[in-house]
Design a protein around this nucleic acid. Structure first.
Lengths: 325, 325
DNA sequence: CTGAAAGCGCTAACAG
DNA sequence: CTGTTAGCGCTTTCAG
């Protein structure tokens, strides 16, 4: 590997001149420029970005921590984050916590070890204190990590409301919600709280099947459905995550439950899989591109030390008209 | 941020001694050790990993390039790769090419810029030459990038065969395959080639609906199905990717086509979504953990300069017994 | 056992 | 316009 030194020697100039030319900082005579270009060409020189970043005290990388890439919502989220970070000239490092809090901790450490310039986190398998102790760029999606850490999330409360109101309008008299509440108090749970509040307010009873929030496989849903067969049969309006809703559609058809005639189903998240059946699932959709965009814009502001950070950003949710509810 | 210098000064020792202790390389007297520990504690010192890696000429990061995180197969693949790389003490940088070849190229460049120590690629939106020109650790999943670059992939040929044989055994007389052939010649296409070969050999005609390989959304499938309504109705055995197979199941139920009575469907990939319906989709499954494991083991060998690289590794596929075919 | 010194490859003043 | 000289923060000989 040729270094900047080799190029300088070969071009017969100083190493700073080469650096200046490469970075477009400062003037370089046409003559020198030409010789340097030739040297670069001849030596097939490519600047080492890690060495370049050391004096600049930057890594050029942002870490993204999420519970599990296997969950479509997070896969879509990271996909968009990666695209947006790339626009800013930053690379994306991923971490699945996969239920292991030590892994989350380790990746958070990367921030202090200077391997990343900032972290966008959507996981919460560690105590929020872990994040609070760090005085570096951190942005949280969905979970309140305490003061000083920007929190960005969908308007989950509105999402729950939209679902409830829709089911009520369609005459639902007995509701069921299936979902995994995060252990901690997080805006993410508002969807269930608000759903229940609105329903109850209108005199409609709500039963809840609580899932372990970290189980991501469909087999788990089947197991749960079998176990709660009766509760399901007794409900004519269901509110569940995309995966749960879709799995329930299949389960229902096996149980001779007609959707939406006998049971209305509203999915939450609105990832691509809700557009699999025809007609598509009725769903409350999070605006993933917007969400990701705000996370990226905010972490970049933090990294660049810009002013005007918004510490609470809420993105709108909307209904996807479908055939299930 | 405290540096190693600060620690050394405060502990009243040389900077090398601190380094030795931190890395467990060389002896350090109990006395010095104690003073250093105190200094580290007091200064809340955390070593800068980027600086540490510069002299070591390593980044500690591996890049993973794939077409699109939105495709469940790739999401699962990266998930596993990240977990395995972590075991080796390496971090994972992701890149979705999302159909944009310049993005793939840029990420490949990261290897030459020393941002990553190696690349695992499952994408192929650029010419293979782009990879050939680089003499650094590269491992390819699914696509033959030419000599010198280890190629790891599922036994797609066997996968196509398994599907064909199964459909034949069940009396399929008219087959349809729905899939996106990669433009280049890649082992990934063998599933279709072998499927067609076996079927044709037994006198069963095979029709093919060719998809654009880079369309990942379900809406596209619906569009395609509508356009090919008749071809679909005319087939009693279908071989398609997970997404296609699942979408087809839904489409079929809308068309009064009974699965598996009127039409048998075999999915390819075997990602989690095939376990959504009950009974689950009959599917040819790739062994993603094994695949990811081999990719990671191989890139690590390459990075460490170890001997005994296998330049062609093929992982087995297996049938998931399901209710659709 | 330990410290001084020479890098890793590049950036960024600072005098020319 | 340009070369010299300090670093960035840490590793690693190499004499003590």
């Amino acid at each position: 590997m040729a270094t900047i030194k080799d190029v300088a020697r070969r071009a017969g100039v100083g190493i700073a001149t080469v650096s200046r030319m490469l970075n477009g900082t400062g003037y370089v005579s046409a003559d020198a420029r030409k010789r340097i270009e030739e040297a670069i060409e001849a030596l097939n020189y490519i600047p080492n970005e890690r060495a370049r970043n050391l004096p600049k005290k930057r890594a050029g990388i942002v870490g993204v921590i999420i519970p599990d890439l296997q969950m479509p919502f997070y896969a879509s989220f990271i996909r968009q984050v990666e695209i947006d970070l790339h626009e800013y000239g930053y690379k994306t490092m991923v971490c699945n916590t996969v239920e292991i809090s030590s892994r989350e901790k380790e990746y958070v450490d990367m921030l202090e070890r200077s391997v990343v310039d900032g972290i966008i986190t959507g996981a919460l398998s560690v105590d929020e204190e872990v994040y609070q102790q760090i005085d570096r760029p951190i942005v949280s999606m969905d979970h309140d990590l305490g003061p000083g850490i920007p929190l960005i999330h969908s308007d989950h409360g509105k999402g729950g409301r939209l679902a409830a109101e829709r089911l009520l309008r369609q005459g639902c008299r007995s509701a069921l919600q299936i979902g995994g509440l995060f252990p901690a108090n997080t805006p993410s749970n508002d969807r269930y709280l608000e759903f229940e509040r609105v329903m109850t307010e209108q005199g409609v009873p709500v039963r809840t099947i609580r899932l372990e929030w970290n189980r991501t496989d469909y087999a788990y849903y089947r197991e749960i459905f079998e176990r709660h067969r009766e509760e399901i049969a007794g409900a004519n309006g269901v509110f569940a995550s995309d995966m749960g809703a879709l799995a329930l559609c299949h389960f229902a058809s096996g149980q001779e439950i007609r959707v939406p005639e006998d049971m209305k189903i509203i999915a939450y998240d609105g990832t691509d899989m809700t557009r699999l059946p025809c007609p598509v699932l009725t769903a409350v959709c999070q605006d993933i591109p917007l969400l990701a965009g705000k996370c990226v814009d905010t972490i970049m502001k933090l990294i660049r030390g810009e002013e005007g950070i918004e510490y609470r950003q809420i993105t709108d949710v909307f209904i996807q008209e479908g055939g299930t509810g």
